[in-house]
Nucleic acid binder design. Structure first.
Lengths: 240, 240
DNA sequence: CCGGATTTTTATCGATCGATAAATACAGCA
DNA sequence: TGCTGTATTTATCGATCGATAAAAATCCGG
């Protein structure tokens, strides 16, 4: 007979010992959350939130049993709220990838009453608050290495909503009418900007390596280089 | 009785059928490599090479059985050449991370008889040939997400051998005597350059997304921005 | 061509994985 | 308070994982 069967036989006489982890061992009412039996919606939300933490830490090959332990419940409970592990992961993708974009960024990036430099500083400070953190970055790379199609959608979204706008706004502010379809060189210059900022997050949150500047100081510096550098590139192109 | 046991009983009478995968099914001598029984050194080299391909494709959670299938051998054979899976992975790290640096790059980067712009163009074209490929990049990120210490060593190596040199050479070429210990701002500007180039590789080889310029054209463009941008930043710092 | 050394395969173990069915504990309403 | 529906747990299955021991196959010097 297994250990579990024995303990289960012994338990019912003393119901206080039924939940051995959270209560009754150290303090009678110390932890305010012996909260069992959540509503279905709440439980589902909690599973989703804790799963993001867990999978961001260990990767999508992490086990459902350890995930359940991290949740404070048992493993089969997961399967009442998600049909299988892959469905849970897909739900995580949706939350992490697509529910982060603030609609205010659309107007911010194209608001020509303000100087572009100021707009980009504000945008990247807010945008990096959303994505330059361990959870977002690690989920992003775990998913990318698994080769899920949502990555392509995300990169297309970055190019459409951020980079092509930056190119058009920059050229417009330089007195150039941006063409209908953008020059590949300009798009790659914008990707260079994005990549420089992004790699700061990689160093800091994926590789956990010390960086030399605080996030917003880094953004200032990178934008300094970008504005002066891209302007020079455009001028050289106009002259030559 | 298992399927394997049955086939094993049936085989010995017709020794030609002993190796069912490679020969005798389509062409008698088509494949030149029924090469079994390699020397220990050769077998070890082959395991290492094929393991890099395999783990780069599926990640380090890939199974040893599928790896052996990819090798054309059986799974327990791996354990004659590596004590366990982790030791094999450590060996992969060493090859992929540390055996890539060409000593000629040391002299190239610090050769002040040539203009820095020319040196960096050559260096990054060669350097990216070494690391901007699916195998290197995917191993790099799989390892980083696993949190192995070799990543920190690699990033320290990049900063020491590449970035700090770029900063010093750049300032020297601008008529500035670089200080003993570099300004954090300058190091982050150099990381911005590295990150822009690196992220091109991420888009192309990790996320397999279409890019807009060929690799060396991208390098030219990124260096254009970097040289003009960093020069402007330095001039502004001297004036203000 | 034979015998010892070495490479490779067969067979298998224990642990752990995702997933399912059945039993049980809880909450709200009568 | 007792009934009923639902949330949760217990127990377990089959597959697959890394790893090991023993048998078999192969090569090589005599």
């Amino acid at each position: 007979m297994t250990r579990a069967a024995e303990s289960r036989k012994a338990a019912p006489e003393t119901p206080a010992e039924r939940t051995p982890r959270k209560t009754a061992t150290t303090q009678p009412a110390h932890k305010p959350a012996p909260k069992r039996r959540l509503s279905a919606a709440d439980r589902r939300r909690e599973i989703l939130a804790k799963s993001i933490e867990y999978f961001a830490r260990v990767g999508f090959d992490g086990g459902t049993r350890e995930l359940a332990r991290h949740l404070g419940t048992t493993q089969p409970l997961l399967y009442r709220y998600f049909p299988n592990k892959e469905a849970l992961i897909q739900e995580i993708y949706k939350v992490v990838y697509l529910d982060q974009w603030k609609p205010s960024w659309d107007t911010l990036l194209t608001d020509r009453t303000r100087p572009l430099r100021e707009r980009l500083q504000t945008f990247y400070e807010e945008y990096t608050d959303a994505i330059l953190n361990p959870q977002w970055m690690r989920i992003y790379f775990f998913a990318g290495l698994k080769g899920v199609s949502i990555n392509e959608r995300y990169l297309a979204l970055v190019e459409e909503r951020i980079l092509s706008r930056i190119v058009r706004e920059f050229q417009s502010e330089c007195g150039i009418e941006p063409p209908e379809v953008l020059d590949p060189h300009d798009l790659e210059v914008a990707w260079d900007l994005q990549g420089g900022i992004f790699y700061y997050g990689v160093r800091r949150y994926v590789y956990r390596t010390p960086v030399h500047l605080a996030k917003n100081d880094m953004i200032t510096r990178v934008l300094d280089v970008f504005f002066a550098g891209y302007k020079a590139v455009l001028e050289k192109r106009l002259r030559g």
